[in-house]
Design a protein around this nucleic acid. Sequence first.
RNA 1: GCCGGGAUGGCGGAACUGGCAGACGCGCGGGACUCAAAAUCCCGUGGGCUUCGGCCCGUGAGGGUUCGACCCCCUCUCCCGGCACCA
Length: 817
Amino acid sequence: MRRYDASEIEPKWQRVWEDEGLYRASDDPEDPRPRFYALDMFSYPSGDLHMGHAEAFAGGDAVARFRALQGYNVMHPIGWDAFGLNAENAAIKRQIHPKEWTYANIDQQAASFKRMGMSFDWSRMLRTCDPEYYRWTQWLFLRFFERGLAYRKNAPVNWCPHDQTVLANEQVIAGACERCGTMVERRDLTQWFFKITDYAQRLLDDMETLEAWPERVLTMQRNWIGRSEGARVTFTIEETGDTVEIFTTRPDTLWGVTFFVFAVEHPLVKQLAQLGGTWNDIEPLIQRVRNTPLTFREQADTKEGVALGVHAVNPVNGERIPCFVAPYVLMEYGTGAIMAVPAHDERDFGFAREHGLPIRAVIQPEGDALDPDAMTEAYPGEGVMVNSGPFDGEPTPASIAKVATWLREEGRGEPAITFRLRDWLLSRQRYWGAPIPIVHCETCGEVAVPDEELPVLLPDDVDFQPGGESPLARHPSWSKVACPTCGGDARRDTDTMDTFVDSSWYFFRYCSPGFEGGPFRREDVDRWMPANQYTGGVEHAILHLLYCRFFTKALYDFGLVGFTEPFPRLMNQGQVIYDGASMSKTLGNVVEPMPIVERWGADSMRLIMLFAGPFEDDIDWKLIAGDPNKRPGVTAWLGRVFAVTDDAVARGADVEEPEVLLGLTHRTIKGVTEDMERFRFNTAISKLQVLSNEMRAALDAGAGALGAASALAQMLAPFAPYAAEELWREVLGNGSSVHVSSWPSYDPSLAAEDTVTLIVQVDGKVRDKIEVPADADEDVCLDRARASEAAQRAIGERQIAKEIVRAPKLVNFVTQR
RNA sequence: GCCGGGAUGGCGGAACUGGCAGACGCGCGGGACUCAAAAUCCCGUGGGCUUCGGCCCGUGAGGGUUCGACCCCCUCUCCCGGCACCA
């Protein structure tokens, strides 16, 4: 009797697979097999693999193996997103070099991936911190730079006083640094940006083509891009004649404007305040707001504001309205100034009431007359325009576009679209990243490092402790360089790139590993991409995926690739949580996957993850994991599969398999294949369990089960690659790997059931179940149903008013009431 | 506030197109094996009633459509995720 022992078989096959080079993708253009690019989000090397890796890669690997068995030429690569703050901070904490820390983690993760039995093509492995890789990150940056899509500007940034670095808005959570929790401050620095805003509309439009993306990810991206339609309108400052543009989504309320508000950072504020004699009141407000972290403004009081002492002129009716400065108006959105319509905007209403400003209703709700004096809140809804000169009687919101067009005809404004999306701040004042390949020259300005001089190497001998300026700037010699243009004394840019830049193009590099003529070979990318499947965590729903999409569109515009969306099909695994909360060291609820792999086997770990529920759902480890010292259910099942396969072999091929088992085998193949196409791993596994249970029953009844055993081993291969291999080669006696065999096919006539259960209902309630031939027609079903004693009993004395027949599944007798 | 997703036994979940609610597994109860434990195997397992034939109730709450609703429609409650002084 063969016993299932993961610790015995897994290391054995791991070695064999490596020797046999099973998972190498073919780059031969003549390869007749269709290609399948199974892309998993690459790993960040912060320690060993965690539960999230185990979940994501179990799913990604199942897809890759399934497609390989189906006969695809599968590319399933792996790499490491190895630069960044996270690694740098961890290294500082441990008093070692980030490089040392990072490469040690990568080695450990690589060993763990191999232990997990991932079908990676290791010949394509990449690390973004390798000079061979970041050479091309720099090269790509220069392509953006030469087209003006990478530019420098002075900008208010979030500054973490603890980490001594600039943070992106998304790294600031509730006003605090995402990594260390320190309250973030505001600073003005000259920073590098990618002009992603140029692509806002295309990023939005092309989402229509991403049908295989989860709805929630599309929604998040849409929210992030934040498109608003409306109009830009030009107001004039009465006292100076300055013109000030505002953006509004409600040009239909222009006749209801009763005041005007500037953001504190607006360039006209100081001059106007001095003119209005209010500078003494306004300066302290400006100081305070400027010291508030950018993302913490939401806590500001909506009603706070100070009058400027000057007036704006409303271009639609020539009215003179007072100007204010208020923190609720943001310089970053729109134009940094707004028209205020208290009758129809909640914030404007509150501000007007606080400061005793007039309120004028210009949108009349149907069958109701708004009385500005009696209003207790703004009316932002639909209605008919009133008190609006030429537009009186126009229904809104249809009138919005009409007014916008009219503004353009009158030269007082124009239809406009505004996006919430900001340009991508990519420079970091930190050490562990790809140096920005720019030289600053006093005479020539910003000069690109020539392509042939790339990579600009990141020096090892740097004091990388954070300390106000970029660590590279403190290096005694690194930044000193001759200007590539004039040869004069110049200085390298000492900032490094955001890690998200490295990860925005790695999937192209996999197509051409080791290529030295560019970031990738065009024909390789044309052959492999767009990727067939992208698997990873939903935490990358916005930034990483948006940046990848932006890069791909830009590369398309540069003529480097022939498509505009890199991943038409996206699959997000759920998170592995514990007792409803994220696993975290702080909470002390972290469960490590590798000890479980060591104890119960990689196959069990993978099955636990994939059988727990739908792949995209969160897994609460506390709920699915029983006693950690007890054998997991899936491990016990693998044991039963070994026993049943062993018995089937012992019974031999001469003993016939029963009809029911044969039919079930073919139905299982059909069902599991469909489940795999839809990533329903949990139901696929349950179908395999049903099959193994039926094999047990057949064998116990003295019948054979060898055909079922063979199909079961092949279908098990994507989920439990080691166990499947052992069964296939050692128990079933096949000469080569199950992973290069094939996906079993089914015969529809064998998969079809001979008989089905006819449900007999009376008034919609199930009263009887009758086995009928699968091809029974309506008459046969009706005859059989009428003959049912249970049904007759339920009908009793009542008349049958109607007979519903859905052959061969259901008959419903509806009685008279 | 706006947008998206969800709520099914003790637990994870299944039911794909409106047609047997609870597949499969965990847990639990009972039994076999064992000196004992682990492992393994067998039986049972939504709730209530039962004359043991069955009957009634049951998919967050309420209503509707339908011969028939976990599934479609309306109203509501709660949970998760995203965005948010965005003009």
